[in-house]
């Protein structure tokens, strides 16, 4: 391509490639090649130091028909994903509140946003302390209020662990969603609400018929980011529970980690990764379809 005559168009194309190249290289080496390698690996027997052998669908059969832990992790991932709609609902409520002309609203905005840029490992450690049964703040408060007699070991309990981890995840991401939704809210022209007021729409009508439809692009963005987060929340789970107790908080991502680095079953982990990849792709496509079409592209500027 670079050897073609130096027309203006060719120079432009060369320039575009030059700009694209660094990002494409990173994408290729850290995304495409590992993914392809994973794909190959998932149909093979291999672990470090052992010969490479074709395995066909062996790993997939094991995963789907013999591995209860995989199904538990899958189910847990689905449950953990519920954190996204909950976060969005809370964030929307908060965004509507801090969008009002109240005193100190920028302070509230900052406070609510603050957890998001924190390092997830730090967040995990802080929440582990909060949940701790002997020194944790939550147990202390609950006991002081007389709500419980015995301390609850939230993160070591089969019934509480998943919910507890989800609370931490929601706490961290809610501020980010709030900012996205707040921006969306502020992009809705005030005149639309005034027109609706005169047209006779009451507050709840205005919310359902104007605010929500015009927020759709922002909400969709939150859904996508939330789904990604729930598939990749490795660090939070790992620092808080390590997937335990038992498999109570095991997600696909932590299960993959354990399969590769604890059990050294890289081939099997690769197969799980491929399954997770396709699940994620399906979800993203469905979400895109749902928010897509005309409604997802509402141009508020007009």
């Amino acid at each position: 391509m670079f050897l073609k005559p130096k027309t203006k168009r060719n120079r432009e194309i060369a320039f575009i490639w030059m700009l694209l190249l660094p990002a494409l290289m990173v994408y290729l080496f850290y995304r495409i090649i590992p993914l392809l390698w994973n794909f190959v690996l998932s149909f093979s027997f291999w672990s470090p130091g052992k010969p490479f052998e074709y395995a066909g669908l062996y790993h997939y059969e094991e995963m789907l028909f013999y591995d209860d832990a995989f199904w538990t992790a899958l189910k847990n991932t689905a449950v953990f994903m519920l954190a996204t709609p909950i976060s969005i609902a809370i964030a929307l409520g908060l965004a509507l509140l801090v969008d009002q002309k109240i005193r100190g609203r920028s302070l509230y905005r900052t406070l609510i946003f603050l957890p998001y840029p924190m390092m997830v490992v730090a967040v995990g450690i802080v929440w582990r302390w909060l949940y701790n049964d002997s020194v944790g703040l939550i147990n202390y408060v609950l006991r002081s209020l007389g709500l419980i007699d015995q301390p609850i070991a939230f993160l070591e309990s089969y019934s509480f662990a998943m919910a507890s981890v989800m609370v931490a995840a929601i706490w961290q991401i809610v501020g980010f969603f709030m900012i996205i939704l707040l921006t969306g809210l502020q992009n809705i022209p005030a005149h639309l609400y005034e027109a609706a007021v005169i047209d006779g729409a009451r507050a709840h009508h205005r919310f359902w018929r104007i605010t929500l439809p015009l927020l759709r692009p922002s909400i969709f963005l939150c859904v996508i980011l939330g789904v990604i987060a729930s598939f990749t929340s490795f660090d939070l789970i790992y620092t808080m529970t390590g997937g335990g107790p038992g498999l109570a908080t095991e997600l696909l991502i932590t299960y993959i980690y354990k399969a590769s680095f604890t059990l050294s079953r890289f081939d099997y982990a690769a197969a799980v990764t491929i399954v997770m990849f396709f699940l994620f792709l399906t979800l993203a496509t469905v979400a895109n379809r749902l928010a897509g079409g005309d409604a997802g592209k509402v141009d508020i500027a007009d």
Partner: peptide, 19 residues
């Protein structure tokens, strides 16, 4: 309340509902 005044208003930027 505005809704009960039975007035209709046309705005400079028209304020049409884009969706």
């Amino acid at each position: 309340a505005p809704r009960d005044r039975d007035v209709a208003m046309v705005f400079q930027d028209y304020a049409l509902y884009p969706h």
